[in-house]
Structures are given as C-alpha cells and as structure tokens.
Design a protein around this nucleic acid. Structure first.
Lengths: 111, 111
DNA sequence: TTATCATATGAATATACATTCATATATTTG
DNA sequence: CAAATATATGAATGTATATTCATATGATAA
C-alpha cells in the first residue's frame, strides 16, 4: 500500500454504476465497435433494406451479414419485418443515430 | 442476382461515410466496448486518479490497468499529468461523458 | 410437390485482444 | 549512489469473435 488516495477512491467508488449497468453499457458499445456492423447501421440510415441488399452494398457474403444482423438485433439496434421471401431490416430507434453522432463529434475534433 | 433494389442501394451508398471515418468510428466505440475500460472511465468522472488508485478501486493488477489506460489515451479519451512519481489520469473532454450518457439512455429504455 | 429464392444458423478457423508475468523506466528518498 | 515507489511495456497465453462453409428453414412460384 503506497501513497494514500482514500478520499478520492471513496468518491469514485460511490459513483461507480453496478455491474449490470457496466456490462450492458460495454456490451452495447462493443456492438458499435466493428466496421461491418457500423456499415450496416449506416446503410439503414435512410430507410430499410433487405439482407441481400446489404450484402450487395457491402460486398460481403449473405451469411456474414446475417450473423452481424443478429448481433445488432440482439442489442436492440435494428428490427426487421418479413416481406414475402425477404427480411427488411431497419434501425430500431433514434438512439442509434444519436450514439453514432456523438462518436462522430469526437473523432472529428481530433485536430 | 435476385430481386431488384438498385434505387435503395444507390441512396444507401451515397450516404455511406468513407472508410477512414468508418474505421475511426468503430475503433472509438471498440474502446468503450470493454468492462474494464468502462470502469476506468467512470472512475474518472469525478476527477483525476493515479494509476495505483484505479488499480485498487477495480481490484486489478497495475499492469492490466496501465495497458488499458494506454488504449484509452490512444483513443483520446483520457489524458494524464505527471505528479512526482505518479501519473494522474483524467477524462480528456466532455465527449466521453456524452457518449456514455447516450449509451445509458439506450440500455435504460429496454423495458 | 418440386424447384428456387432469401435468410438463418451451427461448426470450424483464423484473428484480435485482455490479462498476466517479468522486467524496464522514471522519480524520489536516504 | 543505492533503494524504494509508481508506472510502462514486451512477450506469452487464453479467450472472444468475425468470417467462411455447409446446410437448414421458410416462403413463393411453377
């Protein structure tokens, strides 16, 4: 036990969210932390798209896109509706854009 | 080439950010996507802390904390100042809180 | 029903990464 | 200077995960 910082530690500890919140928060951001998923989200900014359209746009295999869409769906970032043989995916709500917008502000401020 | 979705694809493609932005964005969110780093960020919400204080608070090895602080520093989420033998880390700017706040809004809205 | 199209999914693989361990660096104190 | 303290860092390891491949499911059309 080296130098003392009990006061500051108490304050920091008192303001630390519980584990559930910490896990859910980092799990949420983890979903944004992948280029493929980020591309998928941006592709849905202007409206819904079916899986094969996304795959064509990103030049990726349909399977890979489906796997990532599942992750996005589990995180409540996208939803979909069935239309005949296709599944049309769309952004689940406006938070998605808000969160990305905050990220954009940050990266655009680096000199 | 199955059914047609050229119109929607054009719109989506036109609004897709360039690769640099996509990479920087997902790289930024990736940094938030880890429980340890999230804890470190929250521990700095009320003010600066030295490395050993963070390690003590999180009950983690100093080395692990240092490694994660480096990642946070590279992402411009934290800065530090030298004070004698210790390094005092603090949040780099208010974006950090804004981004986390947006994430909190999202996870708290799940029913 | 059979064939086709659109999507989902399990298993396998390759890569990314968080933590640990050992050690290096830097500052202060004796 | 040597010893102690605070931190940083490279290498190794184990785990998480993105993609691919093969295949299953589900809907429509012939």
């Amino acid at each position: 036990m080296a130098h003392n910082h009990d006061e500051k530690l108490k304050i920091a500890a008192a303001n630390m969210p519980n584990d559930r919140v910490l896990f859910e928060l980092s799990d949420l951001f983890k979903v944004f932390g992948d280029t493929t998923r980020m591309k998928i989200l941006f592709s849905l900014f202007e409206g819904e798209l079916c899986v094969c359209a996304i795959a064509e746009l990103l030049k990726m295999e349909q399977s890979a896109v489906s796997h990532q869409l599942k992750i996005l769906k589990n995180a409540n970032l996208v939803s979909f509706r069935r239309e005949g043989k296709t599944n049309c995916y769309f952004l689940a709500d406006e938070h998605v854009k808000s969160i990305i917008a905050q990220g954009l502000v940050h990266i655009e401020e680096e000199i």
